Simulated assay, not measured.
Amino acid sequence: MPSTTRPLRLRRVHPAAAFLLAVTVAAWWPATVQATTPEPTARAALQDKQVLGNSRLRVWGFEVYDASLWASPGFDAKGYEQHRFGLELNYLRSFKGRDIAERSMDEMRGIAAITPEQATRWLAAMSALFPDVQRGDRITGVHVPGSGARFYLNGRLRGELADEDFSRLFFGIWLSPKTSQPAMRATLIQAAAAAPRTP
Rank of each mutant, 00 (worst) to 15 (best):
F62A: 14
P145Y: 01
W70L: 09
A186R: 05
A183G: 05
A112N: 06
R121Q: 11
D76L: 04
R56K: 15
V64D: 10
A124P: 00
G86K: 01
L188C: 10
F62N: 10
A27P: 07
F95N: 00
L129F: 06
S104T: 08
P116R: 09
G86V: 01
L161T: 00
I189H: 02
Q47C: 10
R12C: 14
I139S: 00
L157V: 01
A119N: 12
V59S: 05
G146T: 09
Y91M: 02
Y65N: 01
I114F: 01
T37D: 06
Q181P: 07
Q190C: 13
M105N: 01
P177S: 05
F85A: 02
E81N: 11
Y80D: 04
K96Q: 14
L57E: 01
L169F: 08
M1D: 11
A113V: 09
D165S: 11
T198Y: 15
P2R: 14
S127C: 14
S127G: 09
G97N: 04
T140G: 06
T32P: 05
Y80H: 08
T198G: 15
T41V: 05
V25T: 10
G172A: 08
S72M: 12
P177Y: 04
T198K: 14
S68F: 04
R168C: 02
K96T: 12
G155A: 00
K49L: 15
W174H: 00
N90G: 14
T187F: 14
S72L: 13
M1N: 11
F130A: 04
A192K: 03
T198R: 15
A128L: 07
D76R: 01
V133P: 00
M126C: 11
R168F: 02
R135V: 14
D106I: 11
P145E: 02
L8M: 11
A193Q: 15
E160W: 03
A191V: 09
F130N: 01
L188H: 05
W60V: 15
P199R: 15
Q47G: 04
S127T: 12
M184R: 01
Q118V: 07
P116H: 07
I114Q: 03
S94V: 04
G148D: 03
D66W: 02
G74H: 07
L188Y: 10
L10F: 05
T179N: 07
D165E: 13
R98E: 13
L57F: 04
P15L: 06
R12W: 14
G53Y: 01
E88V: 08
L20E: 10
P2I: 15
